[in-house]
């Protein structure tokens, strides 16, 4: 049974993934890698949504409400994935456009704008 693994382990794994993603966004320099780290954060969110949907720890819910809750969490994951795909399309487009202009893409070189 999946419920043999405590909820906190899943939440912990989600948090660890989220933190790795955050650190990656801060320290990595290649925009594609930065973007991959953001995707990792979104996956952490998806895991969290699914775990909450599975374990249903919200107080005072009837069985039917709990079922609705579970479906809500699973739907949220689908939407997050769809939005992430849309972001990839736009993001890679922007990175391509920069690459055409400069033949390189490094966030440290993005320094035309400052002040």
């Amino acid at each position: 049974m999946v419920n043999d693994v405590p909820l906190s382990w899943f939440l912990g794994l989600g948090m660890i993934m989220f933190c790795i993603g955050t650190i990656g966004v801060v320290v990595r320099r290649n925009p594609v890698v930065v973007f991959m780290c953001i995707e990792l954060m979104l996956n952490a969110v998806n895991l969290t949504f699914l775990v909450f949907a599975r374990y249903g720890i919200a107080p005072g819910q009837t069985l039917e409400q709990a079922t609705n809750t579970a479906m809500g969490g699973q739907m949220a994951v689908i939407f997050v994935m769809a939005v992430a795909a849309a972001e990839v399309a736009v993001g890679l487009g922007i990175i391509m456009a920069i690459f055409r202009l400069k033949n390189e893409a490094d966030v440290d070189d993005m320094s035309v704008l400052r002040g």
């Binding site: 969110v45 249903g56 919200a58």
Partner: peptide, 30 residues
């Protein structure tokens, strides 16, 4: 292009943070 990339990376990052928030709200309130 530079402004678009900065906006995009930081905006996507902020979206992820916002999403983590609503995931936890969802968990706690059902």
């Amino acid at each position: 292009e530079e402004s678009a990339l900065k906006y995009f990376l930081l905006g996507a990052f902020a979206s992820a943070v916002f999403l983590m928030g609503i995931a936890y709200l969802f968990g706690a309130t059902g």
